[in-house]
Amino acid sequence: MRKLWKNRPMWIALIAIVLLVVLAGFTANGSGAKDGLFRTALSPVAAFLHTAESEVADFFVRVFTPSEISEENARLRETVLLQEQKLALLDETEKENARLSELLNFTEANPNLRFVTASVIGRDSNPYIDTITLNAGSRSGVTEKMAVITPDGVVGRVSEVGPNWCRVKTMCDDKMRISVMVQRTRDEGMLGGRCESDGELVGTYLYYLPGKADVRTGDTIRTSGIGGFFPKGLYVGTVIEVNEEGKGTHDAIVSMDIDFLHLEEALIVVGVDEAIG
């Protein structure tokens, strides 16, 4: 008995546990009227504590949340940036795909020509020298004076070649001349040089047409094949102005469809298969 008494706190605890569990069971059955009274009596205290709680909780939320929000913001910003980059890349890929498809269609439509596809990797900043640099060179079989074209027309001629690059003198260069013909009349002439109006490129000049040549606005100009560098029949542009009185100067102005400022890919004609053609 004395030993049991020695563990008095434990006994009290055990009895308290039993009583408390019974009390819990009692209130769980919904018959705790006194419990209800207790709660009613304590409700003002609870209301006060709730008010204090919201203040304390707000304090902790203020202490802990801003860093979470800023972290989340940083994460979201990063995600948005990533998505924007992906979208831009997708857009760029779509555009490139369209351009390359066009080039492919063009090469398929000209099976007698052998091409090397190249991207523009540089443009001369000098406004008087109209050249562009492509990312294909002697390793790809590119040599000087080869024709550079796009489905929209003739770009120019290779003027300098490196192992993996080449420089192309465009049709807008003042020293550039290629042999062309008027498709409708088959009259031949020379084409080249930059024609500007109010500082804007409007086309290139057509020279040396025969005296009786009947050239009209809207006539299509194609390469004549004379000289051997440009295959015959490649589209060059359309006549937009005929010089009626010009003697010793140009005979007409030819508009080109190529946007030299935004040209991104081009085809270098590296060979012509006569058998197919």
Partner: peptide, 17 residues
Amino acid sequence: DLFCNPYLGLSAAAYLV
């Protein structure tokens, strides 16, 4: 229990255990 739980005495019993 008075402030938060519907069963008065349950938390006290659990803590005592």
